[in-house]
Amino acid sequence: MAKIKGDIVINTERCKGCEVCIAACPFTVIAMSKDVNSKGYHFAMKVNDECTGCTNCAVVCPDGVITVYRAKVTTE
């Protein structure tokens, strides 16, 4: 069965930890990390594989740090 799978890549160095993407994600794929980047912000990170590639997080991100991938994956 073909299924739409998505993936996100977050540029953690540019993330400012505003958490707007967390509120925008319909599948709670994103959470804040305990680590900080070089500017001292807790950055967003992907915590599960529910992502469908809807691009909501990337669209609302004020700093444009999220790149979204989407592909059809065939599973048996």
Binding site: G6, T55, A58, G64, V68, Y69, R70
Partner: peptide, 12 residues
């Protein structure tokens, strides 16, 4: 999934 052809959104 992380292939250039699968990119659906990227900062301009």
């Amino acid at each position: 999934i992380r292939k250039p052809e699968n990119i659906v959104y990227k900062k301009t």
